[in-house]
């Protein structure tokens, strides 16, 4: 039986799912209390498509990503839900479904998927590369971990990958150390490293946040091109709505560990439903609307140790209802084209 979460943003029957995340819960057990970093998140991602995950710092975007990679570390733990990976064999004829959360996190099977089938790039490209090893050492290591290649073959392949990410003089750069390259070049190298084994999924955790705007535009352009070539699905995590508009086809908005809204990118920008999404969008400066003061969101992000009961957004919500502060899970409300929202405003209808 197909869940309603597996609906994509078009109306075609959906048999192209790559991963399905159901009711994911990842908590951090700290001495100060339990932080519910991810508290019931469900979504699915199709092959070859890009999902943008938006939200402010601490909303659980990165933890969601690490939960999918099954690499949440202590004191964090994935306490509930499923991450279903629809794994296909080489010629796309058969498909098996694996619940990644059931695999041993550091076991052989999970490690083969991690890096081989799911790859990840990070926020600080230079810090994500070892400062005392060359780019080449790290790429060759990644390739040989997942592909039966000799050192020389892996190096050849590494140079080819560096060329694909448009690094100039790849034969020389492969022997460079991270500190000899610019941030943008390091992120290109990270992308080359991530895509070297042709993963089915690329998780990009704010890959351009630390880069300047021009470099960001180049990296986004590059990722779009590579996605077309490699048919990789991308989960793109960012707090920047402009970047989402640029790269994503579907968008998931997160707030305090909850997936408050999920919609095709056009719907998010033109028909946002959740008051949080609406507030986020109205706080972006626009060139075509004259405004004296930029709109800001009322209130502050709640204390993660003491989340408000009911909808976590209700203390800041301009359209809150009495029901919002009651201690019940906010239900999903589904619209057409896969648009869904978790808000009591729409359950009344």
């Amino acid at each position: 039986m197909k869940s309603r979460f597996t609906q994509g943003s078009n109306d075609m029957p959906n048999n192209n799912i790559l991963i399905e995340v159901k009711e994911l819960r990842t908590y951090f057990y700290l001495t100060e209390g339990v932080v519910r970093a991810v508290d019931g998140v469900s979504f699915s991602l199709e092959r070859g498509r890009t999902l943008g995950v938006v939200g402010e710092s601490g909303c659980g975007k990165s933890v969601t990503a690490r939960s999918i990679m099954n690499m949440v570390r202590k004191p964090g733990r994935t306490v509930g839900g499923e991450v279903l990976y629809h794994r296909r064999n080489g010629d796309d004829t058969t498909e098996e479904i694996i619940d990644l959360l059931k695999l041993e996190p550091m076991g052989d099977e999970m490690r083969a998927i991690r890096g081989g089938e799911f790859a990840m790039i990070f926020q600080e490209p230079r810090a994500s590369l070892s400062p005392v090893h060359t780019i080449g050492t790290q790429i060759v290591e990644a390739i040989r971990l997942h592909r039966p290649m000799t050192k020389a073959q892996a190096r050849e392949h590494g140079i080819e990958m560096l060329r694909r990410v448009k690094i100039p003089r790849p034969e020389q750069i492969i022997d460079a150390y991270p500190h000899q390259l610019s941030g943008g070049m390091c992120q290109r190298a990270m992308i080359a490293l991530a895509l070297a084994c042709q993963p089915a999924l690329l998780i990009a955790d704010e890959p351009t946040t630390a880069l300047d705007v021009t470099t960001e535009a180049q990296i986004l352009e590059l990722m779009r091109e590579l996605q077309a070539t490699f048919e990789t699905s991308i989960m793109y995590i960012t707090h920047n709505l402009a970047v989402v508009a640029e790269i994503a086809r579907d968008v998931m908005v997160m707030y305090m560990g909850k997936d408050v809204e999920f919609a095709p990118v056009d719907a998010i920008f033109h028909e946002p439903k959740h008051p949080y999404t609406i507030a986020l969008l109205s706080s972006i400066p626009r060139i075509d609307v004259e405004r004296d003061m930029l709109a800001t969101m009322a209130g502050t992000v709640p204390d993660p140790y003491a989340l408000p009961k009911g909808c976590p957004f209700h203390p800041r919500c301009p359209s809150r209802l009495p029901v919002c502060s009651q201690d019940i899970e906010v239900p999903y409300v589904f619209f057409d084209k896969g648009h869904r929202v978790r808000c009591h405003l729409y359950t009344a209808k």
Binding site: A112, R114, A127
Partner: peptide, 12 residues
């Protein structure tokens, strides 16, 4: 971050 990146690569 490079340690996490190494884990994300699938290293033991």
């Amino acid at each position: 971050p490079y340690v996490e990146a190494a884990r994300a690569r699938g290293l033991r």
